[in-house]
Design a protein around this nucleic acid. Structure first.
Lengths: 344, 344
DNA sequence: GGTTGGCACTCTGTGCTGTCGAGTGCTAAT
DNA sequence: ATTAGCACTCGACAGCACAGAGTGCCAACC
């Protein structure tokens, strides 16, 4: 049931034309766009075949044809010719990053914003914390007589802090004591290993101080979870409004993008490693996305997968242009993060 | 040119009916809703008068009437009877706040979210840092051999950190030295007094270390600006899509809410102190808001204005219900923050 | 003088109709 | 296998009539 050369060309032309115009494409228009020298009737019979096979859909009897999800799938998997980035585009993207900031959180935020302004889609970046991330440093800082701030610096450069109220009178001596204790016990440990059980065991070791420091240990646990759950940066969600075909669901889409859990569910479906994942329309598990396409890929820091970058737009987007762009964004992001971290 | 009792009642009834139904209201419908026992013809002549005076508008000749901005204004300023909160509503709102978290940033975020889910509008909360906010503590923490984290704890409970790359080999001795130096010079100082000039003078005092610590001083300056500029938390912007009348501008509205500068411009127009400010439609400076209403008020921490809380919705919102609610939110937020800070 | 009922008028929304054009599907010829 | 020709289908659009809601005005009334 393979497509011959002409059928491939016709399908590709339909997808590309439709991506551009957003209108069903007819046989006559198509004959002009094809390299082949055939009449519209021939094209028509091929289109009928493609329709039969499920590659095309028909909004109504006398309209042109529109790619079905299967059609897009075939186009993306086999027919599309990705447009490699020009040198100018590369330097333009490079300049979009705020290279000077060594904070990974800021970098992810900037990347989401840059990608969004570049692609005119909603974008999401996230840090998926792999098992290898360790606690580089924990620091307790006095913030008041009964308040402390706990600062966690992770080996992937992520920094989080948390305010914690304590029962005891905060003193330099106690802070010092705890900092030594905590860094001794937790420093260098994998984030995921910091379980309530482990912290409970630690608490026992604190002896007389155990009760006093318990809220702090709890806070440390929560901080580790925050780092390990990663963070999602969304940008340009308002751009989804520009695509009329999404109108029906755009409200749910926006709500989804505001909701951490939905994002997590979506990005958890990401494929293995650096590979691309393109989910088209109804292929999506979630209703909200049934008229959208999600294109995402991972980025690597120092050779290990460290996060995801992706975009959400209408099914009708210029894959051939966007995929190489997204690839370059992921690559650049990984590079910058690697460089940032290798500096010490 | 004052409105007599019946005209007042008619205007109020028109505003309230229109807020509910969203459809132009006609004289016949109105006669039923009024306490007065008059015929539709009488109501009609009063409506004609209100129209003449600019309190009402007419979408087209044979349609009912719709309140003009002046009409809304009169309603809000003189006619509206705010619906005081019931005890249940109060406890419901109280329970929406995540009371246990002593972090002001989280509190503001929660407040925005809670207010949005409660009012079905987009909401914004912000911390405006008054002149009285001081540096409570500055802490330099080693994050690598050439990287430090600077943590700033402000007297209003706000905590910010920044990663900073340095030229020198980070050592405990240097960190200690700088921490003492910085807290001695800057601790207790008003955020706004930390100018580049002042830091420049400090740098001179560092003598041989001057060059080495300069990037850190710059980072401290930036941190102070971050705290002093305040933060904006937006929630529920997707809810604006539910209001058909905003459709035309909703894209620009959403973009505005994503943009820090626009928010700042909007909230800078806030009135004095705790007072309410309601800006209706064209009263707004910014085009994007010309079909929306902005309702905002300040909240106070320890008796001084400390921030703003507000909501953005269509002009047609239930002011009588929302204003007391917003008031209560602002009050609760201020209380919680005051309590949080007074704990040490 | 304020209030009322009556009536003509205006405008929107809806549904029906006919026409136009784009595009298909089929068939017979090449 | 390809093509030209032709009938057919369907949506978009414009025109039209009609019902319904609401107004504006006027003469009559208390």
């Amino acid at each position: 049931m393979k497509l011959n050369e002409r059928k491939q060309a016709i399908l590709a032309a339909i997808v590309e034309t439709y991506i551009h115009t957003g209108e069903p494409v007819g046989s006559k228009l198509l004959t002009g766009k094809l390299g082949f020298n055939v009449s519209s009737a021939t094209v028509r019979s091929d289109m009928a075949w493609l329709f039969e096979m499920g590659y095309l859909e028909q909004p109504h009897t006398s309209a042109g044809r529109v790619p079905s999800h299967l059609g897009y799938r075939e186009y993306i998997d086999a027919l599309m010719r990705p447009a490699p980035l020009t040198a100018e585009e590369r330097t333009e993207i490079d300049s979009l990053f705020n290279v000077r900031n060594p904070d990974p959180d800021k970098l992810l935020e900037d990347a989401a914003e840059a990608l969004s302004s570049y692609t005119n889609c909603a974008t999401v970046t996230s840090s998926i914390t792999p098992k290898t991330v360790r606690i580089r440093r924990l620091e307790l800082i006095a913030a008041g007589s009964n308040t402390v701030v706990i600062l966690l610096i992770a080996s992937n450069g992520i920094i989080r802090n948390k305010v914690c109220r304590v029962d005891f009178q905060v003193s330099d001596r106690l802070i010092d004591f705890f900092n030594k204790f905590a860094n001794g016990r937790l420093g260098g440990m994998s984030i995921d290993e910091v379980s309530s059980a482990y912290l409970g065991a630690m608490s026992v070791n604190l002896g007389e101080y155990s009760r006093v420091f318990n809220p702090i240990l709890t806070a440390i646990f929560e901080l580790c979870r925050e780092v390990s759950d990663g963070q999602y940066y969304v940008s340009g969600s308002a751009k989804l409004l520009e695509y009329g075909e999404l109108n029906r669901l755009v409200r749910d889409l926006l709500l989804m993008l505001e909701n951490r859990d939905s994002l997590q569910a979506l990005f958890a479906t990401k494929g293995d490693g650096q590979n691309f994942k393109i989910i088209i329309g109804k292929e999506n598990q979630t209703m909200e996305l049934s008229d959208s396409a999600v294109v995402m890929t991972g980025y690597e820091v120092d050779g290990t997968p460290a996060g995801t970058i992706g975009l959400i737009g209408p099914v009708r987007i210029d894959y051939a242009r966007l995929i190489p762009h997204l690839e370059y964004f992921a690559h650049t992001l990984g590079e910058l993060l690697t460089e940032t971290l290798s500096r010490d």
